[in-house]
Amino acid sequence: MKNNLSSSRKVSTALVYAALIAGSITMIFPFVWMLLTSFKTQAESMAIPPQIFPAQWNFDNFTKALESLPFWNLYLNTFLLIFFRVICAVVFSSMAGYAFAKLEFPCKNLLFGLVLMQMMLPSQIFIIPQYQMLAKMGLTNTIFALVFPGLVSAFGTFFLRQAYMGIPNEIAEAAYLDGCTKWQTFTKVLLPLTKSSLAALSIFTAVFAYADLMWPLICNTDLNMMTLSAGLSTLNGQYTTNFPVLMAGSLLAMVPMVILYLLFQKQFIEGIAMTGGK
């Protein structure tokens, strides 16, 4: 009887592994195929039946991709976009999140309503006027243009308000009575307590800024001012059938984020789980 039970458990564990491994292969295969293709010649990539490994591992396709797109500019632009969006989200949302959670001031509910309203509406509803504003200021094709819609973050404000509401009032009260000003109570005492939420918000902001396609395509049409995503979409038209070059370009575009992900895998996943669950 006991033997029976443990063997049936073994079978079910084996099934779980089998299912997870089959799923993992499906998840990883496209990336492996991308890597293998990026080293093939165009003729090899078109061989029938398919040729799995390239005869020679050469970097020609990467050279070609680097020649057809100003990759260093794309890296820099994407980095600056992420950097400024994260800074803005963290600084402004911390201030607003703290005030909404811990302070009393006139029109508080009305103002928080504005935050919620922005969160509910899809970003495309703002995009034409945002572009027109930018064009009027003559600021298209700049880093500022990329950052522009993300100067403030309604989601960040909402998310950090939750974080501050989770901190007991007594902590803030004690600091205040000990002679801290309201500003000091915020920066010296409460802000450090939201560290894990700030990390989650930063990762969330970075991942979504990196993935965004519509806004970067609209605001910066000069290839040298594009982000990696937008730049990659122009490569699409240039090399419609040369898939090895397209794969090399895609690899170059995804590598920095994937390296960061592999290094901070736990923070990435937990950060996203934290922001998504709210």
Binding site: G23, V207, Y210, A211, A253, M254, F268, I272
Partner: peptide, 12 residues
């Protein structure tokens, strides 16, 4: 592994 596509830009 399952989470990986999330950090790769949809363009790629």
């Amino acid at each position: 592994i399952y989470f990986l596509p999330m950090v790769v830009a949809p363009a790629a």
